[in-house]
Nucleic acid binder design. Structure first.
Lengths: 278, 278
DNA sequence: GCGGGACTCTCCCGTGGCGGGAGGGTGCAG
DNA sequence: CTGCACCCTCCCGCCACGGGAGAGTCCCGC
């Protein structure tokens, strides 16, 4: 506290290197944040282009660093800092929710990997069945693969609100365009079978056409469903059957029926070209 | 099970689209994995370039999908699949450990953010002190910023093994090149003060030169240390002091002394140009 | 045998958040 | 004034794909 400094300059500015040193953000990073408008230096020398930061910007830089540590995208942080305090809380909550979802996904992936690497489950049985045309209450939209799970929840909730359980003539189901898998986006349809004419919000009554299906039943959580898909696909390939149209799923036993994911049963039906007359 | 299929072809191959459909990997992804050598189609038509996959490759694709779900890099998966079973377990363990570290880092970041957004801690006190030259036992290397923490553990463990506690003349410390922060890589030195001549492995006795330091003490976990750095930096900027050389840290109370991270004390000293004679 | 539509191919560019490096200007101390 | 550390602006690379253009291929039905 004893004096001894040259001069007390009220608005001493820091060069980019000094600012990098005190904030622990690299020079490259600071220039990037300037380009992105996330952290604009208080002064920029119009002649040399040198950036000069105010000590007052240090706390902002620290907040930015914290959010980047949490993998929040730079543009989102910029929006965050440009929002009033009320909005911020919501954005932070949203981001933490995303992190939680990512964590859950990782945990699931670990479990799925462990199950995959443990001894093989029994071979699946495949049956062929002609599915007749059905009247269903459905939501159908173009979706992206990464969004399917959340989209499903929303759509099914909407259907639930419209069609009471008593009126249903079977378990819920879904149809998924092949393009969803081959191109990462395509049409998805979820439905419950019901003899009812409905048109509310996204919910519509439609008639699913009759199809020839190769069917099997997946047992257990949906994280492993691709294994059954693969086994079914291998079966079809070995029998030289060709796929024809979107895959069908019927949720015979699902999360709404029991919390025990090992008890879940999902019927997977793949339309195949009819190769035998009648 | 009743017949009716056209023909049973023993080695029916799948086009890339069919393979994408049954494995839930996109066509783009499959082509990428082919380019990277991760999943090479069983046959490639030399004329048309069409890729054809065997049903036997479906399980491999599923394993790959699982590892990608866990964010394992493509090249690492390729190495994994090219390694014998013994090596695999180790690689998987390593990767899971990485995931765990990432999770821990996220948890810490959430805590650090929360602390940063809660009411301000009391202003820090900065004192100036002339640090005399010191004889220390040290490890000094060029490191990258992201590796500093792990490098520190290893280096300090090596020092611990060489210098018994009884011989030490003070708490452990470290020096970190400014380039570590400005450029993400630079020289780091960790040491314990001790009057001893040592040269074992990476451990060497060296003499730290005398320096004029602006000092403050950081209280609490190291995740928040950048806040104190920022405050110290702001202090220096406001007093128009210029930085001179690598920053010093002295671990007065650290994780080896108590598990209560709130009790930790880290002295941070920044060399400044001597501005007063004597 | 000939459409035509669905499928597939190979580029090439874009993403996000920087790091590396080239080539050249600036600021400051001795 | 000279040297050197610092700073500038490009531009490219990373990683795991997605998007899209432009061209070739497959196969079914007629």
């Amino acid at each position: 506290m004893a004096g001894g400094c040259r001069l007390v300059v009220v608005t001493a500015l820091l060069s980019i290197g000094e600012f990098a040193t005190v904030t622990h953000l690299s020079v490259k990073t600071l220039r990037h944040y300037h380009d992105e408008g996330l952290l604009v230096p208080e002064q920029v020398d119009p002649h040399s282009g040198y950036r000069y930061y105010s000590p007052d910007q240090i706390p902002t830089a620290q907040v930015i660093r914290r959010f980047r540590d949490l993998d929040m995208p730079v543009r989102e942080i910029a929006r965050l800092l440009g929002t009033d305090v009320d909005g911020r809380a919501g954005m932070i909550t949203d981001h933490l929710a995303r992190l939680e979802r990512r964590l859950a996904a990782t945990t699931e992936a670990v479990g799925a990997l462990r199950r995959l690497l443990t001894p093989d489950p029994p071979r699946l049985e495949v049956v062929h069945r002609r599915e007749p045309a059905r009247r269903v209450v459905a939501v159908s939209e173009e979706v992206r693969r990464a969004d399917v799970l959340r989209w499903y929840s929303g759509a099914m909730a909407e259907i639930d609100a419209v069609v009471p359980r008593a009126l249903r003539t079977g378990p819920p189901g879904g149809q998924y365009d092949n393009a969803l898998f081959t191109h990462g986006a395509g049409r998805a349809t979820v439905f419950v079978p019901a003899d009812r004419d409905v048109a509310e919000g996204r919910v519509r009554s439609i008639t699913l056409p009759a199809r020839e299906l190769a069917l099997t039943v997946h047992r257990g959580p949906h994280d492993d469903i691709d294994v059954t898909y693969g086994a079914l696909g291998a079966h079809l390939a070995e029998h030289a059957l060709r796929l024809d149209g979107p895959v069908h799923e019927n949720y015979l036993v699902g999360p709404r029926d029991t919390a025990d994911s090992d008890a879940w049963r999902t019927e997977i039906g793949w339309p195949v070209f009819t190769t035998t007359p009648g």
